Simulated assay, not measured.
Amino acid sequence: MEIKINVNESLNDIEVVISGNDLTKMTAIAKQLQTKTVETHKLVIKTADDIHVVAQSDILIVESFGNDLSVTLKQQQQLTTRKTLKQFLSSNTSHLFVQISRSMAINLNALVRMESAFSGNYYAFLTDGTRVTVSRRFIKNILNRLEGRADNETV
């Protein structure tokens, strides 16, 4: 497959032309492009007093305490908002974050290494030196995400 990109600044909108000799493949590519959403790199976090706009890459850990969500940023800054972990992960940030326990998710780009702990669990070490426990229930999904496979594929 060959991919060519031509930028035409005279166009008002994005125009995509797909050509090839396999209709099935072309249809699959068209469907992927149609369902792809524009990714935003900023995230709005509403706290009790303020509204913070943070870069998704600055978020290291997201931890749920009931209906409150604690967001740990680089430089150990913490923000608390009224949201569940499920709501956070179902938003457009799901490609960047991975759930590591029932109540916690981490930024995949902040993951430096993992090492085996006790009872089948793991420790995940983040770029700022933080160590968090990864539940054995979520290991398979994390490995799939790190290797670029979809969540529902088997190892």
Rank of each mutant, 00 (worst) to 15 (best):
2 E>W: 10
3 I>T: 12
4 K>G: 14
6 N>T: 12
10 S>Y: 06
11 L>V: 04
12 N>I: 08
12 N>F: 03
15 E>P: 00
15 E>V: 14
18 I>R: 13
18 I>S: 13
20 G>W: 09
20 G>A: 06
21 N>F: 07
22 D>L: 05
23 L>V: 12
23 L>I: 09
27 T>K: 14
28 A>G: 00
29 I>K: 10
32 Q>S: 10
32 Q>M: 10
33 L>A: 06
33 L>H: 00
34 Q>T: 01
36 K>V: 03
36 K>G: 07
36 K>W: 01
37 T>P: 04
39 E>D: 14
39 E>R: 04
39 E>T: 04
41 H>W: 08
41 H>A: 14
41 H>D: 15
44 V>Y: 04
46 K>G: 09
48 A>W: 10
48 A>F: 10
53 V>K: 13
53 V>M: 06
53 V>I: 10
54 V>P: 01
56 Q>K: 15
57 S>C: 15
58 D>M: 12
58 D>R: 09
59 I>E: 14
60 L>H: 05
60 L>E: 02
62 V>K: 10
62 V>C: 09
64 S>D: 01
66 G>C: 08
67 N>C: 05
68 D>A: 05
69 L>G: 05
73 L>P: 08
78 Q>L: 07
81 T>M: 13
84 T>L: 06
87 Q>G: 11
88 F>S: 09
89 L>W: 01
89 L>Q: 07
90 S>I: 03
91 S>F: 04
91 S>A: 15
91 S>V: 11
94 S>M: 02
95 H>F: 09
95 H>W: 00
100 I>R: 06
105 A>T: 05
106 I>C: 00
106 I>D: 00
107 N>T: 10
108 L>Y: 01
112 V>H: 07
114 M>T: 13
115 E>A: 05
117 A>G: 07
117 A>N: 02
118 F>L: 09
119 S>A: 13
119 S>M: 12
122 Y>A: 02
124 A>H: 05
124 A>R: 01
126 L>A: 09
126 L>M: 05
128 D>A: 09
128 D>L: 11
129 G>T: 08
131 R>T: 12
131 R>L: 01
135 S>Q: 12
135 S>H: 13
139 I>Y: 14
139 I>H: 03
142 I>C: 04
144 N>P: 04
148 G>R: 07
152 N>P: 03
154 T>F: 11
